[in-house]
Design a binder for these strands. Structure first.
Lengths: 209, 209
DNA sequence: GTCTATAATCGGATAGAC
DNA sequence: GTCTATCCGATTATAGAC
């Protein structure tokens, strides 16, 4: 049984509290209280609350940029898309505090704004690469302009689905089921797939419900 | 030249500041400062900041519920859809402070949560009625399950598009162009339209760009 | 590394004069 | 109706002992 370092416990606890209560509603006192350490101790490890947020964001950022590094010329299958979406939604869910109060968080820690925008851009780019691969394989037919709109739509949905879902369906805030989000994403793509792939996509998406 | 009552000026100024800076970042002092009145004066007219938010929300709520009262059995045209979407995005833009920090705002003024959810539900219902009308007129072909996903998607997009757009494209925060949002919404619907209507929708959506 | 104070600041809100 | 002054509470952050 390994003992977890306080510094890491602070990060873990903060993330959990941020996700469930919303970052703006979580005070440093609440964090230290939850961990049964003193507020002073917390500030020994992090010089400000913003630093905690920044470090959590950095982990998220790395994870995302890594995940979004879609190969340029690979033949991507529908199953791989499904897997990719699953991973994507899981990552977003794990750091949903960023998305839940996106505008607010980015406005208060403004160094994050540019970095987040970069992730967004890369995400849209990843969807464009995937669709490009589908097109090359004859799995998808779509016009350039529509494609661009679709990829933006996919990006938007991947950002906001889970907040939207928990808001409109009153799910508890602790566990977020990425399934419905993946389903929704596949629904968005399906109309532009060739008929064989449409069937396959429909079967696949149903598994996520 | 009519003199605007202070009470109304407070509402107007608050709305403008909330929209541009985000509600959590706007203090009562900032509001009174912007208006060149004293903070005490502000508190003469409203007993709390929450009351201002609540009253702004109430106006928004009424406007929305009114707009979303789609007739049950009418034959709705594509042009009418375009008009409806335009109005919808305009209303959302006018009260975008609610959407920009949705989770945060709803969590701090919890009486609003249920009311907002009601609006969401009505919005999805409105889209269902519209699509139902399209189907009856033979303008749209879609399966029940897909329809439900589509209407949720439309609801989500109508909520988050403008925040997303201003975030990813760095528009100034003052003026929000509802056009691109309407375009995006029509793009979502188009795949399910009959071929004649698809053409018409594509023409129409392009006008919004 | 961790604790117990405690400072410093800020935002919401009130009291009472005009 | 409006102002000035001020209070209160919360939250971030620091100082210094252990």
């Amino acid at each position: 049984m390994k003992k977890i370092k306080t510094r890491d416990r602070i990060l873990n606890t903060s993330l959990a509290l941020f996700n469930s209560a919303g970052e703006p509603n979580v005070t440093t006192l609440l964090i230290s209280d939850e961990m049964d350490i003193s507020p002073g101790n917390l500030y020994y490890h992090f010089k400000s609350k913003g630093d905690i947020v920044e470090e959590l964001f950095a982990v998220f950022e790395e994870e995302m940029l890594d995940l979004l590094a879609v190969p340029e010329d690979a033949d991507i299958s529908l199953d791989q898309l499904g897997f990719f979406l699953h991973m994507l939604f899981e990552a977003v869910a794990r750091y949903r505090f960023i998305y839940q109060d996106l505008v607010n968080v980015l406005s208060r820690y403004d160094q994050l704004q540019g970095r987040f925008r970069k992730i967004l851009k890369k995400k849209t780019g990843a969807f464009e690469l995937i669709c490009g691969s589908f097109r090359r394989q004859g799995m998808m037919e779509i016009e350039a302009e529509t494609l661009s709109a679709l990829c933006e739509q996919l990006t938007l949905t991947s950002c906001y689905w889970s907040s939207f879902d928990s808001l409109s369906h009153l799910n508890d805030r602790e566990s977020v089921d990425p399934g419905r989000g993946v389903y929704q994403m596949i629904q968005l793509i399906t109309p532009y797939l060739a008929s064989d792939e449409q069937m396959q996509a429909m079967m696949m998406s149903r598994d996520y419900l």
